Simulated scan of single mutants.
Amino acid sequence: MSEQHILLIENPCSLSIHLGCLRICRENEDALRIPPQDIAVICLHHFAIRISVAVLQALADAGAIVIITDSRHHPAGALLPEFGRGQATLRLRQQLALEQSGKTGALWRKLVAARLGTQAKTLQKRQQKSVQRLLRLSKNVKDGDPANLEGQGAKIYWRELFGTPFQREKHGATDPLNARLNFGYTIIRSLIARELAIASLRPELGLGHHSQENPFNLADDFLEAYRFLVEDTVASEGNPAPQPLDAESRRQLLDRIYSAPIQLQGKDFRLPAAVKQTVNSFIQQLEDPNKKPALLLPDHSETA
């Protein structure tokens, strides 16, 4: 299988399908052609991009996600591959059975421990304080995280990584740091949502996230284990961030997140392949209810 890419289109252009390929035509430039099956995510980041239903259909058939942005350059919506790729009813029953089994708390513990462990590694790379505190928290997480060690770790982590003036803003952030974090999270979340859709999994049914207003609870669960990629990249740019999140900054951020090696059980993967491995490990859990709760997540300090 060819390597899949994340495309960020930020200039006026026309998108069409020609000889089975996505053709990107810009004024006074040679057309670019990319097979739809080579695209994992395509982000349309300009109001003057022209696109046809044939393009949307080809991208959906290939399993790609299409993201559109608003006037503030924030994600406004996404087109996901259609659910029902062969096993939708089976997967729904398996997910409901998992909830009834009481094992979702143990899986959420794995995700929270991974989040805390990767936070510790991110700080350790910069020789910052509180590494051991985060490692201790990661090893003490209980099923379902009733003590909210995730929240305790976040307070420590953000203070150490970006300093005390920094405050995390999830929605509508305009400061360069939060804007970068939110943009990077959106791309990874979209990759996860894509894999869930291809696997016929219902993203509404989360392990630790249970909001009735969030159609991507399960994607946000798995995102916890991959957030460190964005944070490590953003922190490497310096604090405060050198400039607003402009087009060039977005391209650099995407390139670095996408190209960063991710270790799963000692083996290196690129981001799309790593996400696929994580989702596949969740499917194995669904297919074997008697299996000890486990997920294949980026390497971290959690060993329980």
Score class of each variant (00 low, 15 high):
Met1Lys: 11
Glu3Pro: 06
Ile6Ser: 00
Glu10Ile: 08
Cys13Asp: 01
Ile17Thr: 05
Ile17Gly: 02
Gly20Ala: 10
Cys21Met: 14
Leu22Val: 11
Leu22Lys: 03
Ile24Met: 07
Glu27Val: 12
Asn28Leu: 13
Asp30Cys: 10
Ala31Tyr: 11
Arg33Gln: 15
Ile34Val: 15
Gln37Met: 08
Ile39Trp: 01
Ala48Asp: 14
Ala48His: 10
Ile49Gln: 01
Arg50Thr: 13
Arg50Asn: 12
Ile51Phe: 02
Ser52Asp: 12
Ala54Gly: 08
Gln57Phe: 06
Ala60Gln: 12
Gly63Tyr: 05
Thr69Asp: 08
Arg72His: 13
His73Lys: 12
Ala76Leu: 14
Gln87Trp: 07
Arg93Leu: 12
Leu98Lys: 08
Ser101Cys: 14
Lys103Asn: 15
Gly105Val: 08
Gly105Lys: 09
Ala106Met: 14
Leu107Ser: 03
Trp108Gly: 04
Val112Gln: 03
Thr118Pro: 00
Lys121Asn: 12
Thr122Arg: 02
Arg126Lys: 13
Gln127Glu: 13
Gln127Tyr: 11
Gln128His: 12
Gln128Val: 09
Ser130Pro: 07
Val131Lys: 03
Val131Arg: 03
Val131Thr: 14
Gln132Val: 11
Arg133Ile: 13
Arg136Cys: 12
Arg136Asp: 14
Val141Thr: 09
Gly144Asp: 07
Ala147Trp: 08
Glu150Phe: 00
Gly153Gln: 05
Ala154Arg: 04
Lys155Phe: 03
Phe166Trp: 10
Gln167Trp: 08
Arg168Ser: 06
Gly172Phe: 06
Thr174Trp: 02
Thr174Asp: 10
Pro176Leu: 05
Leu177Asn: 01
Leu177Arg: 03
Ala179Val: 04
Arg180His: 06
Asn182Ile: 06
Phe183Ile: 04
Gly184Asn: 00
Leu191Thr: 01
Ala193Met: 04
Ile198Asp: 06
Arg202Thr: 10
Gly206Lys: 02
Gly208Trp: 04
His210Arg: 14
His210Trp: 10
Gln212Gly: 15
Glu213Thr: 13
Pro215Val: 09
Phe216Arg: 02
Ala219Tyr: 01
Leu223Ser: 00
Leu223Cys: 04
Arg227Tyr: 04
Arg227Phe: 02
Phe228Asp: 01
Ser236Gln: 15
Ser236Asp: 15
Pro240Leu: 09
Leu245Tyr: 05
Asp246Trp: 07
Arg250Ala: 05
Arg250Thr: 08
Arg251Gly: 08
Gln252His: 12
Leu253Cys: 08
Asp255Leu: 11
Ile257Lys: 01
Ala260Arg: 08
Gly266Val: 11
Gly266Asp: 09
Lys267Gln: 15
Phe269Glu: 04
Ala273Glu: 12
Lys276Gly: 03
Val279Ile: 15
Asn280Cys: 09
Ser281Pro: 08
Phe282Gly: 00
Leu286Pro: 04
Pro289Gly: 12
Lys292Leu: 13
Ala294Ile: 11
Leu295His: 02
Leu296Ala: 08
Pro298Lys: 02
Glu302Tyr: 15
